[in-house]
Design a protein around this nucleic acid. Sequence first.
DNA 1: TCTATCTGATAACTCATAGTTATTAATTAT
DNA 2: ATAATTAATAACTATGAGTTATCAGATAGA
Lengths: 293, 293
Amino acid sequence: MSYQIELRHLTYFNVLAEELHFRKAAERLFISQPGLTRQIRQLEILFGALLFERGKRFVRLTDAGRFLKAETDILFSQLDYIRVQLKKIGEGKRAALRIGFIGSAAQTVIPDILYRLNRKHPDIDVSLNELPNDAQVTALLDNKLDFGFVRQQQAPAGLSLQKISEEPFALVVPAKHPVHAKNFRSLRQFEKENFILFGRDYSNDYYQLVMSIFSDCNFIPRVHHQTVNALTIFKLVEKGMGVAIVPASLKKGYDIPVRFIELNRIRQRSQLSLLWNPASRNPGIEALLELTR
Amino acid sequence: MSYQIELRHLTYFNVLAEELHFRKAAERLFISQPGLTRQIRQLEILFGALLFERGKRFVRLTDAGRFLKAETDILFSQLDYIRVQLKKIGEGKRAALRIGFIGSAAQTVIPDILYRLNRKHPDIDVSLNELPNDAQVTALLDNKLDFGFVRQQQAPAGLSLQKISEEPFALVVPAKHPVHAKNFRSLRQFEKENFILFGRDYSNDYYQLVMSIFSDCNFIPRVHHQTVNALTIFKLVEKGMGVAIVPASLKKGYDIPVRFIELNRIRQRSQLSLLWNPASRNPGIEALLELTR
DNA sequence: TCTATCTGATAACTCATAGTTATTAATTAT
DNA sequence: ATAATTAATAACTATGAGTTATCAGATAGA
């Protein structure tokens, strides 16, 4: 008579909400269409709300259905997270940490931090994931990531931030460019050059920081945005496509014939930060934070 | 052969984790003990981790079990939340907002904000809940509350804060006390009096703010902490138990023979703030925030 | 207009498994 | 010893998820 909502209902709902077609959804779920119909109706009765609008020749989500879809997406991603963590803990590990990082941090601090973490807490499993700045922010908010190493100085809403390191920016120019560290005076010397920069969609925070370098010397550069990795930028500079501004530490680890000019006299510096979600209950979070402060 | 994890498993697990006794837990679930035994074992197989340690005469949670208990608690509170919201949306409402507030805010801004919210968005259902400051913070983090009206100026980790209003503090003294607004010079005049203040456990932020008033005039008061409402404090003052420091607006709405002396010359002011969890997806949140900025 | 085809809902079946009762084995308390 | 606990095991029952077959309504094409 009075059933209970089960994960089965929510799984079926979730697939139907994507397919919006009972037969196709049933197929994807490896069950028959009448079975799906019945489970969905049950769910609607249990929630006391209509989830799908069934037209004569179409199926649509109602407002309630749209809301539930968003919620079940989150619910299932949490269940996945629970599964992963439980598996680890069951194997005697303390936790699994999912760490994201931007490419430009891979050479510098990350290896050191991971080494120390593993030595102090060998019972914490770490998985690494190279991701753009803003992608890490959304992943952290969706609980798809436990930590993010990003280049920004302000904590986005809902996340906590800790400064890891700071370094000057550097100009990247072709190896045989007339300007070098000795005769460099101002960015104005590059008025006629193209600047290859990371696009705003990569990280708005980082973008605005770099743009403020130009506005500080009252100079509007010709900009060519690229959302690619350091190596590609160096290659573009080498080929004479323009000059770039990157964090100075990027010069380590690459062997490309380009010249780096450190911008020591400007106020802007590139800050590498650690981001995490303070709402997360992952026991590994405390362990890593402890190492970095 | 290969089952699926269902909410049934998690519900049973959750109750057993509380009872730590198969027969008692089964009783609470209105099922038989062997049925529970089997479902729990299935869950352990499905997760690939031992959840309970069965001794000869006791049942204990393993590390994995402790972790899962914390997670399922959250999961079920989210399911409750989904149920409530869906019910509302199904009835044509847009959302349900659960608002917490401290007693001292009930007279001032809250009625106004709620009136404007209801006029602009009649499709949002509001439920109100008077709660101490810190209780609101934990409720917000646990997704038991959508908004909190609190007296503090810094956002706790994981929450966003918006300033609503600011007002001076006021001294509350008995009606026939020798000190009044005219001859009041400094808090030092109350060196021999008892101060009735909210305890630190009520809100650490508020507590430190009030204590900084004393440290600013290099004076360590005799303090008597109370975690009660304004009316009780006024009653205590009236009866000569001591003097109090409260936000000035509290004088409105009460009819107790006590005298208020506004502390306009000190730097500390009491700030009423709106707190919310930026991770929440409640569509009503945007609507209320829009009204307050 | 008559088919052919596609949609989801309905009805009646079957079968997997949640939950049952009865019992065991091992402990502790009296 | 005996009684009273505990959880696990075995064998049974019955509920309801999932099945097949079919219907009813809509659309599109000939």
